[in-house]
Structure formats: C-alpha cells, structure tokens
Write a protein that binds this DNA or RNA. Structure first.
Lengths: 215, 215, 215, 215
DNA sequence: CATGAATGAGTTTTCATTCAT
DNA sequence: TATGAATGAAAACTCATTCAT
C-alpha cells in the first residue's frame, strides 16, 4: 500500500484521490461524504477509488494516514533539521525544544485545518481505529517525548514528576488547544493559543532553581 | 420545549427518550444511530420522537443539552455546594478550588463516558453547533473562570498572565485529557490523568513567591 | 409470517406483492430481477417490500413458499376432494389415483408456468434452500406416497420393489416432465407429456397378474 | 471457435479457461460468478477471456458446450465402444443397452457434479438457450433413441407405444433423477437412483410376452 | 495478442421523515 | 396525541466490459 510499491502513475493517482478525499471528508464529515463527490473532484471513476482503497472506511483511514505522514514530515522538517534530539537539546535547551515542537504542531494544523477535522472525524467514527491521526497519541512519538522529559529531569532542568503523566498532559494540552483553537480561525490564532498554553505547561515543569537562575 | 412547560407526564416521556437517545448516540455515533432503535428502547412510537423533537439533529442537540445540564448540576453539587465562588476561595484557596473543579469534571466524565462520546459526536457532526456540549467552552462558565484567575492574580497568588489564554489552556487541557483519557478505561484512570495534568498547569500559574512560601 | 397473523390489510398487501414478485421472478429470473420493478408493479414503495420481506432473497423464498401453498391447495382440491387416501383408493384404485395425482401436478404447472420457473430458479440460486418448491420433494408428501405404494404392493396390485426408489422415480419423472415439458408450450402439452410418462411408470409397477387380469 | 481452428497454444489456453469457468460457474451460479475469479484461477488476464469468448454469457455457453462434449465423449466411450447401435443391440439386447445408456449418464454426472449445476444454471439463466446442456434434450440424440425404441417395438421386445412419448419419459426420468439425485451426494447414490428408476421404466415398456418368456 | 486498470451503469439496502388511522 | 406502516431519496458497492499500453 505504500507509494513506493506502486508505479509512479498509480502513486500519482493515489495522491490525487487522497488530496480530494481529505478536503471532502474534512468539509462534510465522514458520514456525510459521498464517495462519488470525491471521485468527481479527483476526475476518476468511483470504481477506481474502490479499486484502490477497498471501501469508504479504508479510504478514510488512508486519508488519515496521509495526514499523519504530512504532519510527521512537517514536524521533522521544522524541528529536526536532520539533527537528532540530543544535539537539539545541546543547541537550544529542552524548554526551547518543547516550545518548538508545540509550535510546529500548531503551525501544521493552522495551515491544514482539514487535518484537524480528519483527526476529529476519526475519533468520532472509528473510536478504536488502529492508527490515531495525531502524532502525539502514537507510541513511538510518546516514547521520544518521554525520554526528552526524563533527561531534562535528570539534568535538573525540570522538576521530577511522573514522566508518563507529563507527556499525557503535553499531548492532551496540544490536542485540546488544536481542536478548540481551530474553530476560532483568525490568522495565527491557533499558534498563539498553543504557545500560550505550552508556556504555562513549561512553567509548571521547570525546576524552581531554573526559574530563579533566569531571574 | 423546556420541561417546565410540559405536563409531568410529557416531561417524564421526554426524559425517557433522552436517556435512551444518549446511550444509543454514544454507542453508535450520530450517523450510525437509527432513530427507530431509540424509539424501541424508550417504548414509544417513532412518530412520538419526531413530534417531541422535530428531527434527528434536534433530538441529538437536545441530548447534548441534556448532558450539559447533568454536567452542570454535577459540577454545582460537587464544587459549589450552594456557596458562591468568593466564599469558596476564602475557604480553600484558589489552587484547591481549581483542583476541585477539574476533579469534578473528570469524575463526571468518568461516570458518564457516554457524555464524552456525545461531546465528540457533536463536534464531529455539528461543527458549528450553537451549544457546545462542554461547559468550559461556554461563555458564562469561561467568564466565571476568568474572574477566578483574575482575582488570584490580583491577590498575587498567581503569576500575571493573559487571563483568556490561561482559561483557554485550562479548558483545553481538561478537554484533551478527558477525550484522550476516557479510552484507556480503567477505574480512576480519567480522574488521575486530569488531576496530574492540572497539577502541572497549576504549578505553571502560581507565583514564585507562593512556591517559595510553600517550601 | 403467516397471513393469519397479519391484519387483513397487511395480508392483502402481502398477497399483491407476492403476486407480482412471482410474475417478475419467473420472467426475469432471480438474478435479473430488480426489486424496484416488483415494487412499481405492486404499486408500493420499495421500502415497503423490504419492510415486509427483509431482503431480496427472503422475498424470493416467500414467493416460492407461496407457489408451494397454491400447488398444495390445488392438489388437495383436485385429488383429495376432502376424502382421505384410503377412501380414494377404494373408490378408484391405486393406479387411477396415481394417474390423478400426476395429472393434478401437470395441470397446475400448465396453468402456472411461472411456478415452474420459480422451482428452477430456486434450485439454481438456492441450491440448499430449506424449502424445496416442489411438493414431491418434501418429506411429508413423499411419506404419503410411500404409503400409497406400500399398500398397493401389500395388496398385490404392484410388484414388490423398494418403495423409496419407486417414489424417487415417480417424483423425478414428474419433475423432469414438468421442467422439460413446460418449454414446449402448446395447450395440453405438459399434461399430455406427464400422463404418457406416468403411464409407462405405472406399467412398470403393476403386478403381472394384474396385467393379465386386465386382458 | 472450434479448437481445431486454433493454434495448439491457443487451444490449450481455451481449455484451461473453460476448466476453471466450469468449476466457478458450478460453484457460484451464473449470476454470482465474477469473471475476474475465473481469469485469476486460469492465470490469464480478464481481457484474454473477453478476447476469446466475447462476453460472460458466451463464456458460459461455451462452458456448457464443453460439458456436453465431455458428456458425449464419455457416453460414447462407455456405451459405444466404437460399435454402432445395431451391433450393440445384437450383442446385449435393447433392454441392457438402455440400462447401460442410463448408467453411463448417471456415472458421468456422479463424477462431474459441476456438470449438473451447469445444466441447471443454463436452464435458469438462458431459458431459451440454443444449446441445451443435456444430451438427451438434443435432437440428434433423441432421434437415435427414438430409433432404438422403434426397432425394439418392431421386434416385439417392447410394447407398442408412442415413441416420442417414451423417449420423453426416458429423458425426463434421467434428467429428474440426476438433478434431484446429485444433491443427496453419497457415493454411488446417483447411479443407484437412476438405475432403479430406469428399471421401472423398462418394466413399463417391455412387452408382456417378453416378461412371460423371462419367467 | 495479452493485459489489467479504469469505468459507471445498475442494484441492493437503509432510514429519516411523513401522515393516515 | 400517539402510532408505526409506507415511502423514496440517497449511498455504498459491484462487476461486465472496454481500451490504452
């Protein structure tokens, strides 16, 4: 199912279908989406979509997956800059790194509000989907963040708290801000909302000594 | 449409319908719910539901409203205990009050996971619903919380930050924790998750002096 | 599902639907039948058919059942005339009774060629249908015929042969004649074909002594 | 379209396709058969099937034809043994020959139950097919059997009855026995059923004198 | 010639909503 | 006012057939 396994042509068609599926699912919601509409927009027959994706549910899941991929790419590009986490911490400190991670998420969702809708639709229609469309819900990303916090605690930058709880809090905060913030719409609103929230979160985590030192 | 305007009998029937609508909408989702099922469970004819609620969408909205009402009642009962906010602050301090508010939300949603689903379904199917099913999204409750924070800042208990942002952060955090926490299921999981998250949030808000004093 | 359990009105509607289902299924075959056509001819909405019969397959099976009922009624009326088998044998002799049974089947199918098609469609589309649409395939009718032959053998009217085999032969002969005879069409063709075939069958069964006596 | 006109390679491919078409049509029925499945099993592209057979209906008809061919070959091999009918009668007598013909049919259908299904599907989906899949329904074979009976009557072996009716009876009896017998399944069941039925049929045809003589 | 991706007409089935009783 | 049978619009999905490669 991965694009690499397909001919360039088939992969291209897949991309076109997914692009329009994304936009229609986001605008209409899963239940109110008529696959025919996606087919028309994508300029292919309905049968072609069913041939490629099997059924409406799988088409949606592929769309969610696609979002996730774009999100992951964006995050990596914004934060990673090809360096590994350790180097990044060296460079900017954990606090700034957490800020940048949160900002990257916010930026992505602000630029791609449809991705927020997909995330919500997925939660609503596929309670138990195997592939949650939000990176921070996924085990591998959580583990990475856990480690980030752990090490900051070890170095005394952060207060010592239960890492899993802190990661949960971060994920929930970003998720909640994104979901609730994307409605209000204005330019920069979402990024602002997430940033401000994360500032409080960080303030809640940094060690008192660090706070004093800053002053 | 309010119960007070109805005969006791009609109001009772309304309650029965709403109770089953809640459970079915929560289990099946809005789109996958067959009104006939609700009618059967409620022991009334389908026509009766349409007579009372107009159409499926309004039935859902009434159900969401109903959840909101129950939530509000529960919060008032848990936190308010008939005293006003000012008295409560006097009694237990802002920090403890915020803790209690958060705990109350968590407890409600843990006891009524269907309410979480309703909240999600509402967001998914009625993006622009006039009546968000989560109290903290509603203007009147936000204003109250804004005031709570404002006064704490005035008294120097909390650091001075933008009140709206802080309230957003609190609402988003609680919302995110509830939505993501309710899936993991275990007894007490949701309350624990919310509490831990709010602890960090509070830590991020209290004034350094307060922190020192505590030590 | 039986008509007696329905209101007269619902039963009437059921009859109308079945009448048209019969004619369409017979003309088009099961697979080529569009339920919409039946609905249009019956003057009801498509939903009504689905409400009454569940799905296309069950509609067909109900149609087959309906044929069977009509066939059974016809046979009883033609042959039985309210007398029991024993009396009938007394009256006309086994040979004549077998002739009359076969003639009754033939007459029914000649008057209702659609019933032949239903029988064939059922065999083709529901190999393992629980309710074969041909009376002689059904256990209760077979048992009756077995007894008829048995007694004739006991009385020395028929040669002694394996009763089950003889009943099979009779059922297969009538079935084959009906299925193959109904295509040729002409008035009386089917009855003639069955009668001639049964004459040979009977000749094959009667005891030699009986034959001699006749001469 | 005959194999002789094709290159050996094309003929081989045709055979492979027909073999799988037979098995799929028999298992699924005409309407429920997906040509793609046949193509996959045969290891060819769907287009190839359409190139060879034109459309699904013609593919089915070719399959039926193919069955017919195999049946004819089998009958000829079992009964004919390269001798002509007259010689065979000389050798074993009409009665035994009729027995052998019936047994040969039964054996073929018992070994190839798919052929029974094809016969039924053909009757169900192509009421008016030009090429009935049962040999005994076909003019040339009927004429041959007619002659067989005629001569037996002329020789006084068989009672004098209308030849066409007798042939019909034989064809219908074998057809009915095969169609109804193939469901019951057990080894030898079908052959037994047909033999027993034909025994009665023969008894019904042989001349009384012959019967006496036997005694 | 062979292929198999693309197509879209055609069917089944569901269910919100209505309305006669 | 309550009911639940009737309706038919709407949508998912299939698959025979075509045709560009």
């Amino acid at each position: 199912m991965l694009d690499e396994e397909l001919t360039p042509k088939a992969a291209k068609k897949r991309q076109i279908i997914l692009r329009h599926a994304l936009s229609v699912f986001a605008k209409e919601g899963f239940g109110d989406t008529d696959v025919q509409i996606i087919a028309d927009l994508a300029g292919v027959g309905k049968g072609t979509i069913y041939r490629h994706f099997g059924n409406k549910k799988q088409l949606f899941l592929a769309t969610a997956q696609h979002c996730l991929q774009q999100l992951a790419d964006f995050i990596r590009q914004q934060v990673g800059k090809s360096k590994n986490t350790t180097d990044l911490i060296q460079e900017m400190g954990t606090i700034e790194l957490v800020r940048q991670i949160a900002r990257a998420y916010a930026q992505f969702y602000e630029r791609h509000p449809e991705a927020v809708e997909i995330m919500i639709q997925e939660r609503a229609a596929f309670r138990d989907a195997l592939v949650p469309s939000h990176l921070l819900h996924r085990a591998e990303r959580r583990a990475e963040f856990d480690r980030l916090l752990s090490e900051a605690m070890d170095r005394g930058e952060f207060r010592r708290v239960d890492v899993t709880h802190a990661t949960n809090a971060f994920a929930d905060l970003v998720y909640g801000s994104v979901v609730n913030g994307c409605l209000e719409g204005g330019r920069g609103q979402l990024v602002e909302r997430v940033q401000q929230a994360v500032e409080i979160f960080l303030n809640g985590l940094v060690a008192p000594e660090e706070l004093s030192r800053k002053k």
